[in-house]
């Protein structure tokens, strides 16, 4: 199944995909008699506006955007929960809203804020229900369960209920639940929300190995930029329903380099006594082609007693990009 999809080109194709919402202006305005019988003013919000993109199989794409940028809407369009206003999105060649059941059979979804597991019964029981929902046959299920248990290190956790698990263990349980039916597309919406740094690192490593070992395609929406940096090769930046940037993380990082600079603490003698020194800070941009020359220059001035790199993190450049786009 997975081999098939990799042979047939992109797994997701969006053509002029557009999704509008009609929302009510001032929802609490209730009219003269409080019954709101007067006509309510409606407003059209372009949640997704004319998107064109493709996603190749067995890759990871990060979805970045501010709140309300349209990330959730896009994920709902891909899973067929919502119907496009115009344009289309094809998942494995099918329109999700028309062929919802066929399409979602090959999709696994993890919502970081919500759980698909039964809170107070053993994980294994939840998995069994999901097996029946997705009509996975007994033999495949056993095999799948074994390999996922090993991969996600769930060994002794299966007999426990989610409420007895740590958040990190629970997220692994959620991922396991969403992969049980062998989907070739995994959608992760804020999977690391609330996790500590160790648990985050573990989840990231596991997702990476899923892509490499299982050939799963991953779409990851996260406000945690480092999630995307570490998991995804490509990224789509959404802003007010439109694509602000689409491409590799590397290219984005290269852009980030423009901003990066090295700050050096240089100790210089004042010339009045051997112990008498002042510490001076020198900033050298890292993007220029004369970096080496300037470094040599600084070294000749005195002893470099400290160094640090400032600015230019992916987070900083993203903030700047979004800021520019808004204004």
């Amino acid at each position: 199944m997975r081999e098939d999809s990799s042979a047939t080109g992109p797994i997701i194709v969006a053509n002029q995909l557009t999704r509008h919402y009609k929302v009510q202006k001032n929802a609490l305005k209730t009219g003269r008699f409080g019954l709101g019988l007067v006509r309510r003013e409606m407003e059209i919000v372009k949640a997704i506006d004319d998107l064109n993109f493709t996603i190749e199989p067995a890759t990871a794409v990060g979805l970045i955007g501010l709140n309300g940028a349209g990330k959730s809407t896009l994920l709902k369009l891909i899973t067929g929960v919502l119907v496009p206003t115009s344009g289309e999105v094809l998942v494995g060649g099918l329109q999700p809203s028309e062929h919802r059941k066929e399409v979602v059979r090959n999709i696994g979804v993890v919502f970081g804020h919500r759980s698909q597991l039964w809170w107070d019964v053993p994980l294994i029981d939840s998995l069994n229900v999901l097996r029946l929902i997705y009509s996975v046959d007994e033999k495949d299920y056993k095999q799948r369960l074994q390999s996922l248990t090993d991969l996600l290190e769930m060994g002794d956790l299966l007999p426990r209920a989610p409420r007895q698990l740590s958040l990190g263990q629970r997220v692994r349980g959620e991922i396991m639940a969403s992969l049980l039916h062998g989907p070739n597309l995994l959608i992760l919406d804020e999977p690391t929300v609330g996790l500590d740094i160790i648990a985050k690192a573990k989840i990231r490593r596991l997702i990476r190995s899923l892509i490499e070992e299982e050939g799963v395609t991953v779409i990851l929406a996260s406000h945690e930029v480092s999630d995307i940096e570490e998991i995804c090769e490509r990224t789509i930046l959404l802003h007010e329903g439109r694509i602000l940037y689409e491409g590799t993380i590397e290219a984005l990082k290269a852009q980030a380099n423009v901003e990066r600079s090295l700050v050096l603490d240089v100790e210089r003698g004042t010339g009045q006594g051997s112990d008498d020194v002042v510490v001076e800070q020198v900033t050298i941009p890292l993007s220029g082609n004369d970096t080496a020359r300037r470094l040599a220059e600084v070294a000749s001035l005195g002893t470099v007693s400290g160094a640090q790199v400032t600015g230019g993190s992916l987070e900083v450049i993203l903030a700047r990009l979004f800021d520019e786009a808004t204004n």
Binding site: V81, K101, V104, R105, I107, F111, R114, Y134
Partner: peptide, 17 residues
């Protein structure tokens, strides 16, 4: 509470789930 979305991302009808 968004449960509908959770049901709709599964390959079964709402009235089945």
């Amino acid at each position: 509470e968004g449960f509908v979305d959770r049901y709709l991302v599964r390959p079964r009808g709402l009235l089945t789930q």
